[in-house]
Amino acid sequence: KAKLLVLLYAFVATDADTICIGYHANNSTDTVDTILEKNVAVTHSVNLLEDSHNGKLCKLKGIAPLQLGKCNITGWLLGNPECDSLLPARSWSYIVETPNSENGACYPGDLIDYEELREQLSSVSSLERFEIFPKESSWPNHTFNGVTVSCSHRGKSSFYRNLLWLTKKGDSYPKLTNSYVNNKGKEVLVLWGVHHPSSSDEQQSLYSNGNAYVSVASSNYNRRFTPEIAARPKVRDQHGRMNYYWTLLEPGDTIIFEATGNLIAPWYAFALSRGFESGIITSNASMHECNTKCQTPQGAINSNLPFQNIHPVTIGECPKYVRSTKLRMVTGLRNIPSIQYRGLFGAIAGFIEGGWTGMIDGWYGYHHQNEQGSGYAADQKSTQNAINGITNKVNSVIEKMNTQFTAVGKEFNNLEKRMENLNKKVDDGFLDIWTYNAELLVLLENERTLDFHDLNVKNLYEKVKSQLKNNAKEIGNGCFEFYHKCDNECMESVRNGTYDYPKYSEESKLNR
């Protein structure tokens, strides 16, 4: 008799109507990190870190770059004969040098303040090359056809396309004075040089004057150069050297050249137009028929994500570079809930034993079982409120962090190594801060989002509990077992918050 009662009780308990509160689960393989956990499985997430590029040089917003090819900045601007293909260059979106560009200054020497000139050019998007001192009329008392084997072109001695090597005419090199007034309405880049012979005999042979000088002056520039005559090792078949100089001439300003020898005179100059998204990159990537809004030396990035880990040097509207390998923000729920887990921000989770793959029309909802059958029903209101809140948060985070910009490298010469090392340390410090901030932001927001979901499920549970009161009992896994019969209409009233407690209280009292 006792065995019969136990079996009867078990049958009745199993047959009781139930309603459970749960949440969506799926077959997603997404994982995120939080402050407290690593690799948390979630139903949905968004990636904030771009880690792919196309490996190509592309047009930037429809404008092609200027590819210097086998030449570098120095060779292009001075007019190395091997860089003749660059003479027609007028406009570009950015400038590309190759790491091993070999054609710079063909006659050995240095372009002074080269690093600063590169910085200036990094904001130039177009130029006009014009004859600042016409070759045939500007130097009537001097020979202007100086050439050298060091600047050979097609097997013949030649010289820079933008400079003139002035030497004596006959047996004399009379003092020369020439000036140019900038009437271009924009900055003009003027380049010139000073020749330093290897011996007094060479000085006399070329310029006749043993104590020659070169003077260059404008409103913002004033220097006097004296040739340094000295024996030097042979470089590119030359014992002599040429140093090259430049200045930016403001609109309306005048530049005056005065010399008694050794002047490498300007022939062509450049009127410059600035462009905020221009820059110089060093890259071996090849040019393709493609378009982008962000270019790196590795390749083009076409992404609206706020961060990238491809390269710190970028041109155009680019994500911020960070050292992170993963920045994924959760938008959905835990896919593998932890039992009795309390989140960092106070939300209680884990009283549900598992997510439901059968509930596909919402994030949170119900599963019921009664004599009429069983089924899932999503709670659309709480789901939609959660979707709206999380979507707004993700968009806000992306908008705040998605300050796209150009980031170019800084140039230092060989004598500025300590400054370069200090600059690298400062840049590394800023990069570490950006990386830390980005990672911390994602970790915190992921923790908040998961706790937010847990709290929403808990609130749904409490909503049902407050309606049923003692007409049902909690069975410990997020479910309630009714003390009365609850048909589909009754189940719907529980879900929509209109459950009639008094209607079922007498039946429940008897069954309790």
Rank of each mutant, 00 (worst) to 15 (best):
W76E: 07
C20Q: 06
A25S: 12
T143N: 01
R223I: 08
I280A: 05
S85N: 10
I281T: 04
L249R: 00
A2G: 01
H142D: 01
T18K: 13
D113V: 00
S52T: 08
Y245D: 00
L121A: 05
A271N: 00
K168I: 09
A230R: 04
D110G: 13
C20R: 04
P174N: 11
F225N: 03
L49W: 07
S137V: 10
G62D: 13
H53G: 04
T43A: 06
I63D: 09
Y213F: 13
W267V: 12
Y213K: 11
V6W: 12
I21Q: 02
S179H: 06
N211E: 15
G55E: 11
Y173N: 08
W192M: 08
Y94S: 08
D33S: 02
F270D: 03
S150A: 15
H239R: 10
K59S: 14
G170Y: 11
P99E: 13
T14R: 00
T247V: 13
D113G: 08
W165S: 09
L57F: 10
W139R: 00
E116Q: 07
K70L: 09
T74K: 10
I35K: 07
L176H: 03
F276E: 07
P134F: 02
S91T: 13
M242G: 01
N72W: 02
F159L: 04
N27A: 15
P99H: 14
A2W: 13
V235K: 13
G185S: 14
V181S: 08
Y244F: 13
S198I: 04
G75D: 08
E228M: 01
S198F: 15
L77M: 14
R154Y: 15
G109K: 06
H195I: 03
I21R: 03
S158K: 12
D110L: 13
V40H: 07
V6R: 14
N182I: 02
L7W: 11
S52Y: 07
I132F: 13
S219E: 00
K59Y: 14
I73C: 05
G104F: 02
E136P: 06
N222K: 03
Q67M: 15
G104K: 14
Q120Y: 11
W92S: 03
V188K: 01
H195M: 03
S218N: 04
L77Q: 02
R224S: 02
K59T: 10
E136K: 00
E82W: 03
G109M: 12
S125F: 11
T226Y: 13
G104S: 13
S85K: 07
T247K: 07
L248C: 08
S93Q: 10
K135E: 10
Y207T: 02
D84R: 01
K186Q: 14
G22F: 02
M242E: 11
E82M: 13
P266G: 00
K168G: 14
A89N: 09
R129P: 12
R223F: 07
D84L: 10
G252R: 11
L78C: 04
E202R: 13
N183V: 14
A105H: 04
E37C: 02
K169F: 11
S137K: 05
G252S: 12
P174L: 10
W139A: 04
